[in-house]
Design a protein around this nucleic acid. Structure first.
Lengths: 140, 140
DNA sequence: ATAATTGCAAATTTTTTGCAGGTTC
DNA sequence: GAACCTGCAAAAAATTTGCAATTAT
């Protein structure tokens, strides 16, 4: 369980209860859309407004506390900023799972960028398909 | 220049002038957001409504004529469905450029999916950074 | 103390929908 | 001719904003 107060302060943001709650929800869910964040935040802080969720997602992404994960055909999800990784995205249930991004992909994409004189700052590798759980459900 | 009438019919869609115009715009721009599509479509078909753009993007994505390219911090763009490739996305100007997705990435991501019993259906590899053009502008 | 943040309500922006008239096959 | 498609206007959904009151440092 992360010390969110420290994370926020180190990014120049005040450690409000609202932000801590939002971050705790995202950490618990791993990846969450605005709706999912709001819904879950209400459980422990019923007066937190949707506008506050929006404002904070914007500022925390700006400050690098959160990362947006845009997804084909769905609303973006947000995750805590962490080491680089890739995503398995289930097109059935919408779940997002992290996997290690290995050296093969890093090196290869770096070369591709270099060959195009492109100053690479970040990568997003999303694999779309059906997760084990949904595949089993479909088989029954 | 693609024969869009054939493409549409082969996907069970009627070849209307509106759809042809939308597809022509997307082909010309390579990648375009709803706004960019609408804006450009008006040049040759000033009465085409925004609602029609929306409806057609939805159905053409559903039918596999178009592909959505979701982008961090911006609105999604759409491209013609074509062979698999990756994207260089400029965080300055928003331009999107295609590059070949080589066998290294394909094989590696397939292995990652297999190891997680994930039924891989599609990949999205987006490299974020600054394009050559914007880098030169910044240097001056 | 002060500068940032919240919550509310209102405004804006984005996307979807219903339906009458028009078009494609 | 039948089914599909368009455009309009209206509705719904998503996001942003202004501001007075509150809170963190």
């Amino acid at each position: 369980m992360t010390n969110f107060a420290e994370v926020l302060k180190s990014h120049g943001l005040k450690a409000t209860f609202q932000r801590m709650t939002i971050l705790a929800v995202i950490e618990e869910l791993g990846h969450a859309s605005i709706d999912e964040i709001y819904e879950n935040v209400l459980k422990t802080h019923p007066t937190l407004s949707l506008a506050t969720v929006y404002k904070n997602i914007v500022t925390m992404v700006e400050q690098g506390v959160l990362v947006e994960v845009p997804i084909s055909g769905r609303k973006s999800k947000y995750e805590l900023k962490k080491h680089e990784h890739l995503h398995l995205i289930c097109t059935e249930c919408g779940s997002v799972t992290d996997r290690q991004m290995d050296e093969i992909i890093s090196a290869d994409t770096e070369k591709i960028a270099r060959d195009s004189a492109f100053r690479l700052h970040g990568r997003q590798v999303n694999l779309y398909g059906v997760c084990e759980h949904c595949a089993q459900k479909a088989a029954s």
